[in-house]
Design a protein around this nucleic acid. Structure first.
Lengths: 337, 337
DNA sequence: GGTTAGCACTCTCGGCATGAGAGTGCCAGT
DNA sequence: ACTGGCACTCTCATGCCGAGAGTGCTAACC
């Protein structure tokens, strides 16, 4: 257990270091905050904190830096969340409502807005249900022998695929075909349809139903992610050198980001989870932190996460992630689905 | 006019510099390629080439580096394009056909494949017609009071929008509504529909037609771009330092990339255009080069471009861009759009 | 016992000089 | 026209030095 003084000292170290990115010295601590004691005393206390693993030392004659454990303690017991200013909340909400594009555009926008607000990278996944059902199938003729299949799923996703069709088919026939197809697939999940596919007598219909299954399963298994705020992230001093920056870009541009999030998803929507440094399951991410939240309801939920160095404004980031997740949840529930 | 020897020397300087990214010296030139002359002679020739502006000098005692003009001469008169190996062409074509996702996935894949092949960033725009017509409109009920409008345009684009609908509407009514809407909009361009909108008597129909116009115009005016290969680009030595890398990321992550391409689009599909350094209209891009090609036909064309430092493997990049553009064109014409 | 002043010690960092190395430019000779 | 030779320039790595920033420890103090 930490004494009250050590606690408050730890808090100051974290605040200071998060702000400046410079190791914080005992002198700076007493100078900047009117502690009633001398630097020497503070040094003794910091030494104790270091013994207990809450802070570290880059080298002998440098100031102190919080360790993962220190941040964890800070997040759990010390910090007081900094709520959004009315102004800020209004701006964000405004930007949200203003965007009238497709779901994809809107998600990218949401990610960008949050990224700007917390000055770190943001990853958002598209909302998806656990086992979405097919709402509607449409076949649209594009050319003589080419049609487009458009499938709408009940979590709001629209998937498309171009298909060759026999030369003589025209739009009204396609329409009828889609109608018949719909009878077999509408209201059913991919798994459900798949069971029926084999038993279909009509070969053409069977092939089409197979495509529907493909589209639905692709959608379910591959959670498309939107990444924004890369420049803001890279402007952080921890990525000042070329190699570190390249390393960071490689990590985030790779297609592993989705997997990253999966391992960290908080169970319940509305819940926000914080992963600090070595708490991260992926040990490539040991100097990174993530603040992850789910948004949306049971039948169409997604993930939104801030990704950045462990030196992060947790007290600002956490409420902002929560706010944006709530906002996204509302919009998804109200007008999207 | 350049003498034959100077020409070949310029070619060697470009080759060497593109390969190593190091200023090339007279000695290295005679050592590596069996020129029948001494370094001193080469120096004299290089001095002449420098006088005429084809190469430069970082500082007195450094080797030579091609100038924009030198690259231009190289691209126009000196280089012999390096065609793809059968192996390489097969691999790329294979990856292309293998991808069966939606158009978007496929475009991102194409960009990634090309980026990997030329080790630079690649920007691809979605194919779009000059004034696409509406092929099909569908209204799908997602919830009690929420519907999804899905519009298919004849350049193969699918756009969607979520709409509130009156509480009591059910799917069959929506279907009928879409049917009626289709009669007004099918086969027409956004501009055409817009003219009719005002004169519509039914208010609900008018609102819906307005949304169709919005979607079509958004699609037309905003050319979505896909960027891939950022890590490959940033691994180039010109971006070794942190600031330069950050600068590069800012430039490419910003939404200006699309505008960038517009100013550089070659007129005819099949045509490939090369912009070297200061030839770039945007003077922020003066140490960048772009190899730009159009793909697809008249009614649905897009742009594919390689973006990188002026020190670029033009002789490899140009045929690869052309190859990929042709491949994309074929696929767009055959099965898509 | 907690606190503090003082001080030795350590480590980083910027500046500076130095020397090696890499190139060029030019001149004089072939 | 070509070349060897040479002076000159510029970069870069290295080592050194001194200033500065911190700590850790000890001895004294309240």
């Amino acid at each position: 257990m930490l004494t009250a003084r050590r606690e408050s000292l730890l808090g100051l170290v974290v605040d200071e270091y998060v702000e400046t990115a410079l190791p914080v010295s005992s002198r700076a601590l007493v100078a900047r905050h009117g502690l009633g004691v001398s630097p020497a005393t503070v040094r003794n206390e910091l030494a104790k904190l270091e013994d207990e693993g809450y802070i570290t030392h880059p080298h002998t004659s440098a100031g102190r830096v919080p360790s993962d454990r220190g941040y964890r303690y800070y997040v759990e017991a010390l910090m007081t969340e900094v709520p959004l200013q009315a102004e800020e909340a209004r701006t964000i909400a405004h930007q949200f409502h203003q965007a009238e594009g497709s779901l994809d555009d809107w998600l990218a926008l949401a990610a960008a807005v949050l990224a700007a607000s917390v000055a770190n990278a943001v990853v958002v996944t598209r909302p998806h249900g656990a086992a979405p059902r097919v709402r509607n199938v449409q076949l649209v003729q594009l050319r003589r022998d080419v049609a487009l299949m458009v499938v709408v799923l009940d979590d709001g996703a629209v998937r498309e695929r171009v298909l060759p069709v026999s030369d003589s088919t025209d739009q009204s026939e396609l329409h009828a075909l889609a109608e018949r197809l719909g009878e077999h697939v509408a209201g059913r999940s991919a798994a459900h349809i798949r069971r029926d596919v084999e038993s279909m007598e009509d070969e053409e219909l069977r092939a089409l139903a197979g495509t529907v299954v493909d589209l639905a399963e692709e959608h379910r298994s591959w959670h498309e992610t939107f990444l924004e705020g890369l420049p803001a992230l890279l402007a952080q001093p921890e990525f000042a050198s070329g190699e570190q920056m390249l390393e960071a870009v490689r990590r985030l541009e790779g297609y592993e980001v989705g997997r990253l999030l999966e391992s960290a998803e908080p169970a319940a929507p509305g819940d926000t989870r914080v992963l600090i440094g070595s708490e991260n399951p992926d040990h490539e991410m040991h100097d990174w932190s993530m603040v992850v939240a789910r948004y949306g309801g049971g039948d169409a939920a997604g993930t939104v996460a801030v990704v950045g160095p462990t030196r992060m404004h947790y007290e600002r980031t956490i409420p902002r992630v929560r706010f944006v997740a709530a906002l996204m949840g509302n919009l998804v529930n109200e007008t999207r689905s």
